[in-house]
């Protein structure tokens, strides 16, 4: 895809403050129990300290979205303009195929609407010239929206703990550095 926008998650800047996750709920008044964006703690020898490094994750707006391929109603489409993967709520009949097929567990089932829902990259906000709610609210500049074609220094596609697939998730990451740690002599 020529025009693919992507979330760039700078794990080295991220302080795990959950602002992005709550900003998403604020923007769409997302139901309790459902989060379109959430944080995953990095549990890996690359950062061996508990709950101090995070991946901020929402939909990866894949090159070949498994959700779209699985949907029997063809309710999920990928926008030409920016590559955002969007559920057409008028078409979704709540068959949950997208939910079972997405390797990243992105679409969530809303019991009240009996439909699937997920991050749509705030395409309407973007069309209106605004940043996605999560990106605008990130206080440290750790979460940005970039053109995938643009090369970011140190960017990786599959950091430790993020599932490797061949469907082309667009999210890119920069890994966290561990400080030099001087512990007390005890």
């Amino acid at each position: 895809m020529k025009n693919q926008k992507a979330f760039f998650v700078d794990v080295n800047r991220c302080v795990g403050c959950y602002t992005c996750a709550m900003a998403c709920k604020n923007t769409y008044q997302v139901e309790p129990g459902i989060a379109w964006r959430n944080l995953q703690s990095v549990e890996d020898p690359s950062f061996p300290h508990r709950d101090l490094a995070f991946y901020s994750l929402a939909c990866n707006h894949c090159e070949k979205p498994a959700c779209a391929a699985a949907c029997p109603e063809k309710a999920i489409y990928k926008r030409e303009k920016d590559g955002a993967v969007v559920i057409d709520i008028d078409k979704c009949t709540g068959e949950k195929k997208c939910i079972t097929e997405c390797p990243y567990g992105v679409p969530k089932f809303n019991q009240k609407t009996a439909q699937a829902e997920k991050c749509h990259m705030c395409y309407a906000r973007q069309d209106a010239g605004k940043q996605p709610g999560c990106v605008q609210s990130c206080p440290t500049g750790a979460l940005t929206l970039v053109n995938l074609a643009e090369k970011k220094e140190g960017a990786v596609s599959f950091p430790p703990g993020f599932k490797k697939t061949d469907i082309g998730p667009s999210t890119r990451f920069r890994l966290a550095k561990v400080p030099r740690i001087v512990r007390r002599n005890s």
């Binding site: 403050c17 959950y18 996750a21 709550m22 900003a23 604020n26 605008q136 609210s137 206080p139």
Partner: peptide, 26 residues
């Protein structure tokens, strides 16, 4: 009140709130 945002006019707030501020409508 539909939603809140940080003011972009303040270079300190810089358009974003925090996890608590984003829960205000709630």
């Amino acid at each position: 009140l539909q939603y809140v945002e940080g003011a972009t006019e303040s270079s300190f707030t810089a358009g974003g709130l925090c996890v608590k501020g984003n829960s205000y409508a709630r």
